[in-house]
Design a protein around this nucleic acid. Sequence first.
DNA 1: ATATCGAATGTTATAACATATCAATACGCC
DNA 2: GGCGTATTGATATGTTATAACATTCGATAT
Lengths: 159, 159
Amino acid sequence: MSTIGFAPHDHASCVADTMQRAESHCADQGLRLTPVRRRALEILLAEHRAQGAYDLLAVLAAEGMGAQPPVAYRALDFLVKAGFAHKIEALNAYIACAHLGECQMPAFLICRACRSVAEADTAPTRNRLNDAARAAGFAIERTVVEAEGLCPSCQDAAA
Amino acid sequence: MSTIGFAPHDHASCVADTMQRAESHCADQGLRLTPVRRRALEILLAEHRAQGAYDLLAVLAAEGMGAQPPVAYRALDFLVKAGFAHKIEALNAYIACAHLGECQMPAFLICRACRSVAEADTAPTRNRLNDAARAAGFAIERTVVEAEGLCPSCQDAAA
DNA sequence: ATATCGAATGTTATAACATATCAATACGCC
DNA sequence: GGCGTATTGATATGTTATAACATTCGATAT
Ligand SMILES: [Zn+2]
Ligand SMILES: [Zn+2]
Ligand SMILES: [Zn+2]
Ligand SMILES: [Zn+2]
């Protein structure tokens, strides 16, 4: 369990490492990390918070990289499919993956106040859900595990 | 773990029981199950499927119970807060609770083809998430556990 | 009975999130 | 160069959700 997102850390190298790994992953897999996609990933990575598609779009537009919703959604679609980003269903928003591509079944701790997000890998949950699914004859393709609440700093702020 | 929603069952009494329990729960808690709210619950209960707010609204409107979005969203808000319904975040849709108010931490199996939903209570998952949250100093207020895939009949249909 | 207050509803408008469609361009390959 | 595919540009539309304010309803207190 990493709590990156709530804890202070060397964020500059956090970003640099991830971009590096994204580059080489794309090279390996024959994926094209085009300028818009690359910039979209940088924008998501800039903060360990969920950002809406239109937030992303606003930044891209300000930089002259396309001003229509499809630009943002296409980039997000690519990043999600490549495993570089996740959609936070409870917020209809997006966040860069904290483990670049190594996620099996991500779980998120989501602050409702500041939208910061910590990502974990919760294999045990999958087992439990798998039991339930098997009993029901249900074929799981994707799982969503999200916990909403308050992060440490927002708890302090509320006190 | 109940797999109501996928398995055949006496749905008429499933509905009647739930409405009964909703009535008495409201009486106990001083909540008002007004005509619109009652009808909204009946509509959700009619199927063990997720229904969009605008689907619900269409039915209410056809019956002369209000034709504007806030009508549906207010009713849904009441039902969710009372524990009579859940929002399925992965679909932006709503479903009646299968355990009327007895849910601690619901988990859902969601068919992407027919939107039928089975509800389970997964206390063990909570423990795992709680461990993660405690380690991060995060205060969980609500959890979302959803598995998307294919229900038994839609698997058969696809075969 | 009637004034008052809070809850619920009616109504209009708009915000926020997401996709369909088709044309134009860039890229990799032969 | 010529071809097929992936990507981008652009317009329009579809879908989900809330803000804001007026009105009505229901219980309570005088
Ligand atoms: Zn970081
Ligand atoms: Zn926070
Ligand atoms: Zn039933
Ligand atoms: Zn199905």
